[in-house]
């Protein structure tokens, strides 16, 4: 079981991801809607998530920039990208993301990636 921070500008997607993650007994400890809010969450929250599910294209601050800033604050964070923009993959991995899933993803693929991330930690 793991704890999650969901970073995506689509509110409906938050609800869906919370449901999907619950299926495997995971817990969502935070929901934010852009990269800047994610950085602030990691800076201020006492409860750090095991995995951050990060979108790339978001207002205010994109996922790749947020990834760099979060890892500068806490290099132990595991950031897993879920994005529709496949051209962002190499940039995300270069920024320090542990994985990249292309939307739309099947629940089974998400669980596999999560299991792999939690195993690494």
């Amino acid at each position: 079981m793991g704890t999650f921070l969901i970073v995506d500008d689509d509110e409906s997607l938050h609800k869906v991801l919370v449901r999907v993650l619950k299926l495997e007994g995971h817990k969502v400890v935070g929901s934010v809607y852009n990269g800047s809010e994610a950085v602030e969450f990691i800076r201020n929250s006492k409860t750090k998530p095991d995995i951050i599910l990060m979108d790339h294209r978001m207002p205010v601050m994109d996922g790749t920039t947020a990834t760099r800033e979060i890892l500068a604050l806490d290099s132990t964070q595991r950031i897993l990208f879920i994005s529709a923009d496949e051209t962002a993959e190499s940039e995300a991995l270069k920024a320090g993301a542990v994985g990249f899933l292309l939307k739309p993803i099947r629940s089974a693929d998400l669980f596999r990636a999560v299991k792999s991330c939690l195993g690494e930690k």
């Binding site: 995506d8 689509d10 409906s12 997607l13 869906v16 991801l17 449901r19 999907v20 879920i82 529709a84 939307k103 739309p104 993803i105 099947r106 629940s107």
Partner: peptide
């Protein structure tokens, strides 16, 4: 936006 909508339907 469509990728997000598709994601929600698939899930």
């Amino acid at each position: 936006d469509l990728a997000n909508i598709h994601q929600e339907i698939i899930s």
